[in-house]
Design a protein around this nucleic acid. Structure first.
Lengths: 193, 193
DNA sequence: CATTTTGTATACCGAACGGTATATTAATCT
DNA sequence: AGATTAATATACCGTTCGGTATACAAAATG
């Protein structure tokens, strides 16, 4: 691993553990066994480092989501697929996933929030469109595509959040496909089924 | 408003806007038109201020939740009531509500996270118990009380989050009871109803 | 081999950080 | 009225913050 990637990895670990604001540039370079000018050489600033980290890690996930949301399969199939992709993204790097969520919930004026926001807006819009395309077929949607999109993303996330609260360190192994299906079903048909 | 309450109000506004870590003690006292020793006189430390803020604002909400969760009404009624209480809490002070959520999603090592955690644990446990009491009557719960509690809280929150994303400044007025009922229904019976 | 580019380190900047020793004023109690 | 306590301010502490001017080494390029 080159020093650029090393710095991003160390930064991610620290941002996850202590929060973006609470982590100093000094701390990052110390963990990487380097010095500050090296970090500034690659990223220009602390926020530049975060932005590059987001770009390299989030883009692929977002691409997969867009692809699944555009697919012409029926809504149930689409939601299953979206659930799968999201879980895979979570499994790939739980720390990064939880860092994203933390940043999404941080204050509006915060630079870090502004850095992640565009990615989530795009993610959200993609899923709104999936519901939108379905609106003709589903009678009772009544313009609630936005609510459903937020609700769906939230439901998936709640499940992953519960997983992670129970077992942050991946001890219990990967999440099975049927578990995801069960969560998506819960969203579609409620808990009383 | 006395200076103690004034400091808490100013701190809340700043913590909401910029995040706990990003706000300096200096900034808080400046907004309040006071000086640092006054803040330290009342709260002892920056984290002491946050803790007192949580105590004075969260306790009443938590009490109402516990009461509703203990009630012997059927689960649907209980969930409606919990939805109502949560929305009222949100409406009472949207900034405070969103600050809570931001703190809940901040890093584990963060003092601020550790300050809010106990409140959410209690909140969560209360709702688990409401489902638990229902487990005998509902056949298909199969030990998923915890998942339902998280899911329910998450669903309510997603709705409030959407409200707030759309209109952070309360321009569109209060949330109606039927809207809450609709969200709770979505949780119970899914989106296909 | 000489030169430029890329990468890394030493040493420093001013500003802001959380927190405090001490003094002073305002209110309360005896 | 005098003593005590509660509430607030001035001025400062050492530390850490994000960021940089400068120098030097290694590697690529001519």
């Amino acid at each position: 691993m080159n020093n650029k990637a090393l710095l991003m990895e160390c930064a991610k670990e620290l941002f996850y553990a202590k929060g973006y604001d609470a982590v100093g540039v000094q701390e990052i370079v110390e963990r990487a066994g380097l010095t500050k000018p090296t970090l500034y050489y690659y990223f220009g600033s602390k926020i530049g480092l975060l932005r590059m980290l987001l770009e390299t890690r989030f883009e692929r996930y977002l691409f997969q989501v867009k692809e699944a949301a555009r697919a012409e399969s029926d809504i149930r199939e689409t939601l299953y697929r979206l659930g799968e992709i999201s879980c895979a993204f979570y499994e790939e790097d739980r720390q990064f996933y939880m860092l994203m969520m933390a940043l999404l919930y941080s204050a509006r004026e915060n630079e870090a929030y502004q850095a992640v926001r565009p990615y989530f807006v795009e993610l959200y819009e993609s899923i709104v469109q999936a519901f939108e395309r379905e609106a003709g077929k589903l009678g009772n949607m009544r313009g609630r595509q936005r609510q459903f999109a937020i609700g769906f993303l939230g439901t998936i996330h709640q499940y992953l959040f519960l997983q992670w609260e129970t077992d942050p360190e991946e001890a219990s192994g990967r999440i099975g496909g049927e578990q995801i299906a069960s969560v998506v079903d819960q969203f579609m048909y409620g808990i009383f089924t």
